[in-house]
Design a binder for these strands. Structure first.
Length: 171
DNA sequence: CCCTGATTCGC
DNA sequence: GCGAATCAGG
């Protein structure tokens, strides 16, 4: 996959919107977060808002040539789809309930996380309206067997926790 | 462990 | 220019 002007534009947009490199990578598809970060630097648009980590301190030089950089296998594309499809038959449970109106990631039509890309340890939080094309899943990491990532677990179980607390408080 | 961005350097 | 490997940190 190459950096077409369209993809670069999208990269710039999402980066300026504050999405993380990995999020941008999954939305673009066909690239890793490293690729995204590398591109961001080459475009000279790193350091949005404030320097997330260190203000660029001189790092130790890498062992350089001694790094074998693994033969051909290292070049293998690592898309979330490829791995997910090989995984088990996707136990999806969360779709039936009314999806909460959560607007966070806006995944372009061509690279949404579909139901087929979910596995035992991906977040199955539905985003958007299932009856439209604007529908996809969070797809981030979750604990094995847990339907949602940490973030969406908090959202998913917040109402229930609140109710329990209320009940306890009342009587 | 999960994640984040930053950097180096072989390709 | 590209991006994997690595680093440094949360």
């Amino acid at each position: 996959m190459s950096w077409t002007t369209e993809r670069v534009d999208l990269l710039k947009k999402l980066w300026s919107e504050g999405l993380s490199a990995s999020q941008i990578a999954t939305e673009l598809g066909g690239v890793t977060r490293n690729a995204v970060i590398g591109k961001v630097h080459r475009l000279g648009l790193s350091g949005r808002a404030k320097t997330a980590t260190a203000p660029a301190k001189p790092r130790r030089t890498r062992p350089a040539t001694s790094a074998p950089a693994r033969p051909a296998a290292s070049a293998a594309p690592r898309t979330i789809g490829a791995t997910a499809l090989k995984a088990e038959p996707t136990p999806v449970a969360a779709v039936a309930t009314q999806p909460a109106p959560v607007a966070e990631l806006v995944i372009p039509q061509e690279q949404r996380a579909t139901i087929l890309q979910l596995n035992e340890r991906t977040c199955k939080w539905p985003i958007g309206d299932p009856s439209t094309d604007d529908f996809y899943f969070c797809g981030r990491n979750s604990d094995p067997g847990v339907p949602y990532c940490a973030h969406h677990c908090r959202i998913a179980y917040q109402p229930m926790n609140d109710r329990r607390r209320d009940k306890r408080a009342r009587g």
